[in-house]
Amino acid sequence: MTEYKLVVVGAGGVGKSALTIQLIQNHFVDEYDPTIEDSYRKQVVIDGETCLLDILDTAGQEEYSAMRDQYMRTGEGFLCVFAINNTKSFEDIHHYREQIKRVKDSEDVPMVLVGNKCDLPSRTVDTKQAQDLARSYGIPFIETSAKTRQGVDDAFYTLVREIRKHKEKMSKDGKKKKKKSKTKCVIM
């Protein structure tokens, strides 16, 4: 069974824990209790493949930012979460993405942009803004509501699919490099 290491990042209060708990335990946590770091595991079937999701729910508070490099190193894919009623959390996505790329030393890291709290009427981040940002990053965008469960499975499952595509691409690139290195030079 394939294991996928997913990391949920975003500013404090955007609903990272609520999304994760909704996926794992099928219930909505409405009281806000700032996370330092929590880890969850769940076995699911995605596109006919049974897999184990190892999900790291991270601290959004700035005082825990020193811990970010460590979990970013171990993560295979990242859910970059903002709240649709919090423009600052949307603007912060850029910083999370840049930090992930720096730590992973790669421009090509599996990510999904997630606009959470889409059940709320007080939207300050337009869907088109988020779609445009995701398009500019070359990553999928999904709106979710941890409260109603809308888009929750889709967000995590899409990230797994992005990781699969990335692994497939990397193995193809690896095979191309191996083929090239088999060419021999004969000096007579």
Rank of each mutant, 00 (worst) to 15 (best):
R102A: 14
M111A: 02
F78G: 00
S106D: 12
S89G: 09
L79S: 00
E107A: 13
M72V: 03
H94R: 13
S89I: 05
N86M: 03
E76K: 05
Y71V: 02
R97W: 15
R73F: 07
G77Q: 00
D105C: 12
D108I: 06
E107G: 13
G115L: 12
R97C: 15
E76Y: 12
D92A: 13
Q70D: 15
D105A: 10
V114P: 00
F78H: 00
I84K: 14
D69E: 11
V81F: 12
E98C: 04
S122Y: 12
V103T: 08
K104I: 09
P110T: 04
M72Y: 02
R102N: 10
R68S: 07
G77F: 08
S65Q: 09
Y64K: 00
S65F: 06
R102T: 09
Q99S: 06
I93A: 08
S65T: 07
L79P: 02
V125P: 12
V125M: 13
M111Y: 03
V125A: 13
R123N: 14
T74M: 13
T87F: 13
K101W: 05
E63R: 05
S106H: 12
F90G: 07
Q99C: 06
D119F: 04
R73I: 07
K101I: 09
D108T: 08
L113Q: 02
S65E: 13
R123C: 14
M67T: 03
C80K: 02
Y96V: 11
N116H: 15
M111H: 02
E76W: 13
F82R: 00
E98Y: 02
P110E: 02
V103F: 13
E98H: 04
T124Q: 13
Y96L: 15
S106E: 09
C80R: 00
T74G: 13
M111T: 04
A66F: 07
K117Y: 15
V114D: 00
K101M: 15
N86Q: 08
I100L: 11
D119R: 04
K88I: 07
R68F: 01
T87A: 15
E107F: 09
V109W: 06
V109G: 03
R73M: 12
F82I: 11
G77T: 03
M67I: 12
D119A: 06
A66G: 11
M67N: 02
V81R: 00
V125E: 14
K117N: 14
I84C: 15
S122R: 09
Q70H: 10
H95C: 07
S106Q: 14
T124K: 12
E91A: 10
R102M: 09
R123G: 15
D126W: 08
D105R: 10
E107L: 12
F82Y: 13
A83C: 06
H94T: 10
K101A: 11
N116R: 00
Y64F: 10
T124C: 12
E107C: 13
K88S: 13
F90L: 15
V103K: 04
M67V: 03
G115M: 14
L120K: 11
N86C: 08
K88G: 10
V114Q: 02
D126K: 08
G77I: 14
P110L: 03
